[in-house]
Design a protein around this nucleic acid. Structure first.
Lengths: 352, 352
DNA sequence: ATTCTTCGATGAAACGTTTCATGCGGCTTG
DNA sequence: CAAGCCGCATGAAACGTTTCATCGAAGAAT
């Protein structure tokens, strides 16, 4: 109830601003686009008129006419995973630094939802698409590959798929490096815990792990444990595996996997690294907060985003990208969970 | 290099689909909008033509003509805070359930960036705006309040600001409830750790805490510690406070605050809940993973999102919202960090 | 037979920009 | 002085939809 106050007039258009400033439509447009060659007098007149009227440019109309939205879409499998939050922030920053807006979608690891949201992004005419695929991306990717959309696949890449530009870590090598790291600390009985063997990057980690085991002559004593995507499933599966045989070290392929493993360790009254050493992929913030703090395979998120944006912006400009496929090296951050007694660890800071 | 394959024709428009199907423009439009009254024969012809041509509707053009983008914008202070990730997901789900798209921006707790991104969202003509303000929102809010944008302010609300519709927990009452909870467990010397006294919700928590202390006659023995926004600052400040006097319980007003407090406890060789009890706001996933698991003040995120969307959709429809201000009650989840010896705690699950 | 409805289909107009061909005055140049 | 050029400004056209007034045909009602 009550009076609504002065009737709110519709938003002013650039046309009304132009009229108020006594200039033509084109001139007003040139002012807001910061285009060359508008006399400073007219420029001021237009700007003050805009201010007076409370003009807000309409990007929808501009995008339509320009046939370019200056927007890129980012599809993320699951925002509840801190690693993807970090990755999203990095990709978004790279795009925003070049003046692009970002629209992102969270797929909740649901392939159908992913396909639908990607279609929606295309209907919105995003200029480019960063995709961190779900496990079922393969089923919806054909249409995308056939279109002329600028696309860069990030993180969960299928090395056999040459249709898309892609950037990720070298998962095979990273798993090998992690194995070497543990082996160098005397572990002979290492268990890899992985959430899914449907994801291409998980497969590469499994293969890298097994190749390294073979190289060290430890194929027999090392095992791969595939668990579900949830914390509970992971915990139970790891606990069950422990009851059959306790490995001397666990390599967890994800943040969920390491939490599950840690809970299983604690629930059995064991302690890390004394009874089992723990090493995890994905160096997210809380890895250094847990007790024991967790040693991690750190992915170079900044570099991933940089490379991904380089590929993207090449595609956007119609240039041939520098490379269509980049695989980066990882770095291992040692914390308490793998530290053998007597060699204290300097707490590694978590880079901003 | 190499041949580009068949020259990629531009994306087909609805006009070309209509021609290919031998129908008029309006008819084709009616088909895609699922509007009444198109004979099933024409409907089929249009759909198959669309499929054949690979037609993807252009939402930019539709938004322009419709003067409605069917999109809502969400501004979040900092995605690195898990609580805001949860809140974002909940708000986004509510909007998407009603057929709206979501564009969100991460402000990194930077007021200037917030103002700029909000302007950008308006230029994109989002239909509505959910805002979880930064501390400096007050400086840029005047223009928003003056516009006729549909806006709902969420979580960090200023109870004195009647310009915006808002929904949040009742922070004053929640802090009181938390105090009561600790007092009921025998604590007389309680310290509130809060990251900022610039945020309105923090202020309300401080006031609620102090009011409760007064009510219990414990105003003298209880203290409020204001620390920075970062983990390191928090840890140092708490550590310093502990060295002057060790409280029997700490109430942390945020996820960061509880981590800082926990680290300070551990670094001093103390243990919770034995030496200090810990209770935190924001029941995010890792609260139950830490050792000890942390008792929390759980905010009803689902209900917050529901109420927020109810307000939003009322504004979008031009209806008067059911209420312009909703304050919800919280629930306390008890875990190990407040459990007095001898009364074991059932581990509270973390609802999906 | 005539007039009314109803149903489906039509296509022009409009949404708010950007772009571009055009125009005009003044300055340089031969 | 004519011709050419340059710097600014102009406004029509176009971007790809949705919407709406209109129309024709086919039945229903008189």
């Amino acid at each position: 109830m009550g009076v609504d106050g002065p009737v709110l007039e519709a938003r002013p258009t650039i046309r009304e601003v132009a009229r108020a400033a006594g200039v033509s439509l084109g001139t007003a447009s040139n002012v807001f686009a910061n285009r060359a060659s508008v006399s400073s007098e007219l420029r001021d007149r237009v700007k003050s008129a805009a201010l007076r009227l409370g003009y807000q440019p309409n990007d929808v109309a501009a995008s339509l006419r320009r046939r370019t939205s200056r927007t890129i879409g980012i599809s993320i499998p699951d925002l509840a995973v801190p690693f993807f939050v970090d990755l999203l922030q990095a990709l978004a920053s790279a795009a925003e630094a070049d003046g692009y807006d970002v629209i992102f979608v969270d797929c909740h690891e649901d392939g159908a939802r992913e396909a639908q949201r990607l279609r929606k992004l295309i209907r919105r005419r995003v200029d480019g698409l960063f995709i961190v695929p779900t496990a079922s991306f393969g089923q919806s990717s054909a249409a995308l590959a056939a279109s002329d959309q600028a696309i860069v696949v990030v993180d969960r890449v299928d090395d056999a798929d040459t249709r898309f530009a892609s950037v990720a870590i070298d998962n095979h090598q990273a798993a090998g490096k992690a194995f070497d790291f543990l082996a160098a600390r005397g572990h002979r009985d290492i268990m890899l815990v992985v959430n899914s063997d449907q994801l291409w990057n998980s497969r590469a980690r499994i293969e890298g792990f097994q190749a390294a085991a073979k190289r060290h002559g430890l194929l027999a004593s090392c095992q791969v444990l595939t668990v579900g995507m949830t914390l509970k499933e992971t915990e139970h599966a790891v606990d069950a595996a422990f009851s059959k045989r306790l490995p001397s070290a666990v390599l967890a392929a994800s943040g969920i996997a390491i939490l599950g493993a840690l809970q299983a360790v604690q629930r059995r009254g064991l302690s890390a690294p004394h009874d089992v050493a723990l090493l995890a992929f994905d160096d997210v913030a809380w890895m250094s907060v847990l007790r024991p703090s967790i040693s991690t395979v750190r992915q170079p998120i900044g570099a991933i985003a940089r490379e991904a944006w380089a590929m993207m912006s090449a595609q956007l400009d119609g240039r041939e990208p520098p490379m269509r496929r980049v695989r980066l090296a990882v770095e291992i951050i040692e914390r308490e969970s793998t530290t053998v007694a007597g060699s204290p660890v300097m707490e590694a800071g978590h880079g901003a």
